[in-house]
Simulated scan of single mutants.
Amino acid sequence: MSGRLDGKTALVTGGSRGIGRGIALRLGADGARVAVHYGGNETAAKETVTEIEAAGGRAFALRAELGVPGDAEALWAAFDRDADGLDILVNNAGITLYETIENVTEEDYDRVFAVNAKAPFFIVKHGLERLRDGGRIVNVSTGATRIAMPGIGAYAMTKGALEAMTLSLAQQLGPRGITVNSVAPGIVETDMNAWLADPAARAEAAAYSVFDRVGQPADLAGIVAFLASDDAGWVTGQRIDATGGSLLGLAPAA
């Protein structure tokens, strides 16, 4: 197998399922050796590794629970057992919180921030010594930092923090030739969005996009693969809207 990421090593957090799995598969197909991180579903992680290898790529799985003390150090210790440096870091792992503000507890709030914002921050902190010059960091955000969705307000706040980190890191790491960007998906068909199985809900979600369909992991994976490549070396500090043009205009008059 050969591709534009030949010779590169990538780490995708939450790479065993959903969007992360799609990203891992695409980076592997493009030639990168992919570290597939998972938090609990070892079977899914091994299946992702097997699929990458069956297509001629290289991959390995590593486990680290995020959102707990020492999570970043544990992740990198697991990574170091199979790799000696990194070129591409994709901060994808995250959890959702479907509650409006009056129903969010302090425990809910702390948990979603610990996994979605704190963990990526310290993963980057402890990963900088491993990330080679000319490397890539891609942070997976959400379209809900642009589109008001009160039902996931706390979740959207975590992703707003991730986008702020994208900007500051892009400035800091530019002298090393490292690019830092965020990708903001809309509604994507993953097991996290099991409600899409309802035909009426799916039709409503599809109507948000100008393409009148729900996003797929591969839609996001292609964008991340571009940002991870040499072709994107002049793109940094950017938020790429990957919502399929969701809610670009006002709703039509009745």
Rank of each mutant, 00 (worst) to 15 (best):
G39I: 10
G39E: 11
M157L: 15
L75N: 02
R202M: 07
P252C: 09
S209D: 00
V36R: 05
I52G: 00
I123K: 03
F122M: 02
Y109V: 10
T105L: 10
D6V: 13
R111K: 13
E189S: 12
I52H: 02
F226Q: 02
Q171A: 15
F79C: 08
G56K: 07
L89R: 04
V112C: 13
D71M: 03
T158S: 15
D191M: 00
A197G: 15
G40L: 13
P199G: 09
T9Q: 12
A207L: 12
G153N: 10
L66R: 08
K125E: 03
R213C: 10
G215R: 06
D191P: 04
G67E: 09
D212C: 10
Y208E: 11
M149L: 15
K159G: 08
S229N: 01
I223L: 10
I187M: 06
A148L: 13
A59C: 08
K46W: 02
G186I: 11
L173V: 14
A197T: 12
A201H: 03
E163L: 07
E107R: 11
A44M: 01
V224W: 07
K46E: 09
A207Y: 09
L196T: 04
G151R: 07
I52S: 02
G7W: 12
Q216L: 14
F211I: 04
I137V: 12
L227F: 01
K159Y: 06
R130S: 03
F226W: 09
A144E: 11
G85I: 14
V115F: 06
A35M: 01
F121D: 00
I137H: 07
F79K: 08
M165A: 11
V124C: 14
V104L: 03
V214I: 14
A114N: 08
D110T: 08
N41P: 04
G153L: 07
G85F: 15
N103P: 03
A29G: 15
G14P: 14
V90G: 04
A221Q: 03
Y98G: 13
A225M: 01
G28E: 00
N41A: 03
E102T: 13
R132P: 15
R111L: 06
V68E: 11
V210P: 01
G233K: 14
G174Q: 02
T96K: 04
Y155W: 09
L131P: 07
A254L: 13
G56V: 14
E107G: 04
F121Q: 06
V68H: 14
L196N: 05
E53M: 10
R213K: 03
L227R: 04
A253Y: 11
K118D: 01
G22W: 00
G143D: 13
V188F: 10
R4C: 13
A197P: 00
A78G: 14
T100M: 05
L248Q: 13
V138L: 00
L173R: 06
I19P: 12
L227N: 07
I23E: 00
A44T: 05
D230F: 10
A164Y: 12
E65V: 14
A156Q: 10
L131C: 13
